[in-house]
């Protein structure tokens, strides 16, 4: 009698239903504990009573040996003051970047253009031709950018300075590059207001040794990083940050080297104050005071 060959048994699939049940419980629980946008805090030092003009006490005489660093912001420029003197003004052009809901693309407009469009009954224009909600456009501002401007004189409207930036996504600038002399890879733009990038400013190729304004940040550009670099208007915040880092390093021995007073106009948006506080903290100024410009 021929021996009956046993058919190899088909491997049994594990019972996945209990695992599915577990996952179904875990996912809603984790969903409730997940933070998609994380909040943080920025601490400040309270302004001194004398600054607030709430009493008639005369403020103490400033210490001549101290740094007495202040950073002022007006509607047109930023300026650093120390020891009774001021550095040259860093002029800027304010620009608002919106993210359109219709195409999820970023658009940048000057505030005056947005305001005049809203007055004539239109919202800011998106790349796909649609208009943003003219009532709620303020809530759609993603970033308030301050483009550094090169001015020859007070009357000169100036030209936008363009620089080479690293970028991580969709043409959004990350860090500005500096050369071996700690100078930005930058040049004033062409055309009216210098809004066209200068042709002489080229993106550095892979293998170039560059740094950012952060200390010890020199690196050799890898091909994937070099491919993502962009030419973008130089931020006035970056110009100020570079100066602040230099000042903090230069006067490291002084007692008040960690102190800075940020002075602003009444109508300065809160976002700009936070950006300046960020730059000051990154430069090493841990004690930040706030004051009003022009008393």
């Amino acid at each position: 009698m021929a021996r009956e060959l046993k058919k190899p048994a088909k491997p049994e699939e594990p019972d996945l239903l209990p695992a599915m049940g577990l996952f179904t419980i875990l996912i809603p629980m984790l969903l409730s504990m997940t933070a998609f946008s994380k909040l943080a805090i920025v601490e400040i030092n309270m302004p001194e009573r004398s600054m607030m003009n709430m009493d008639n006490d005369t403020p103490p005489e400033p210490d001549q040996q101290a740094l007495n660093l202040s950073l002022a912001i007006t509607g047109d420029y930023l300026v650093i003051g120390a020891r009774g003197g001021f550095q040259p003004n860093v002029y800027f052009k304010e620009m608002w970047t919106f993210r359109c809901k219709s195409d999820a693309q970023l658009i940048t407009h000057a505030p005056e253009d947005v305001k005049s469009a809203v007055e004539s009954g239109h919202g800011p224009k998106c790349k796909d031709g649609s208009e943003m909600d003219k009532e709620k456009y303020l809530y759609e501002i993603e970033t308030i950018e301050l483009w550094a401007i090169n001015k020859e004189s007070e009357e000169d409207p100036g030209r936008v300075i363009w620089a080479v930036y690293s970028s991580q996504s969709e043409n959004v600038p990350d860090s500005a590059y500096v050369d071996g002399n700690n100078a930005f890879l930058a040049a004033p733009g062409e055309g009216p207001m210098g809004l066209t990038p200068p042709p002489m400013l080229k993106k550095p190729s892979a293998g170039a040794v560059l740094a950012t304004i952060d200390p010890n940040s020199a690196r050799t550009l890898k091909p994937d990083v070099a491919a993502k670099n962009i030419i973008y208007p130089l931020s006035a915040y970056d110009l100020i940050a570079k100066d602040l880092i230099q000042i903090h390093t230069q006067f490291i021995d002084l007692e008040d080297v960690d102190n800075i007073i940020i002075v602003a106009n009444d109508d300065t948006q809160f976002d700009k104050i936070i950006q300046l506080m960020d730059r000051a903290k990154e430069a090493g100024f841990s004690k930040i005071n706030l004051a009003k410009l022009g008393g």
Partner: peptide, 18 residues
């Protein structure tokens, strides 16, 4: 504070807190 609030309002509220 909303990021578009003017410094004036922020400063007054901050001073009041102090």
């Amino acid at each position: 504070i909303d990021k578009n609030i003017p410094y004036d309002a922020m400063y007054k509220v901050m001073a009041t807190c102090g």
